[in-house]
Amino acid sequence: MKSLINKSRVKSPWLIHFDCGSCNGCDIEVLACLTPVYDIERFGILNVGNPKHADILLVTGTVNHRNKKALKNVYDQMPEPKVVVAIGACGTTGGVFREAYNVVGGVDKVIPVDAYVSGCAPKPEAIIDGVIIALGKLAEKGKRVDQGIFERLEQTQTNIKKR
């Protein structure tokens, strides 16, 4: 049963797309994946609007001090197992805005990232590739969840230890 569930995890990744102040270049490419040309629903991928239903978080754009809270909140509201894919130059590193006074940097400054898709903007094929890589990590994390190990709890443990 557990292996069946784990297999299903890979076959049914629902993703949520979060825009951290991107120029919309990457967003257009993300949405292009849904069109008949790429049709990611072939892989069981659905674009959902709610982190509580999602397995994969796609983040585009640079993270700044205002939206980092929202990004963290959305990430926290995703039930585990979950993976994060940072998309585009801005998402992965902060891009050309990296040195700006209000910018924190890439997505990985706020939440752990499992796959990086470079490009400005990346091609839909590249995004799909990134998601596929993330799926591998999703399966790994799924096994840990099956054993009752949750990242959320571990973080709380380490936070308590730090204090």
């Binding site: 569930i5 297999k7 299903s8 076959k11 069981g44 969840v145 099956d146």
Partner: peptide
């Protein structure tokens, strides 16, 4: 079926 099985495996 994959969707539902996956959902059962979620937190």
């Amino acid at each position: 079926f994959y969707d539902v099985l996956k959902l059962f495996g979620k937190e």
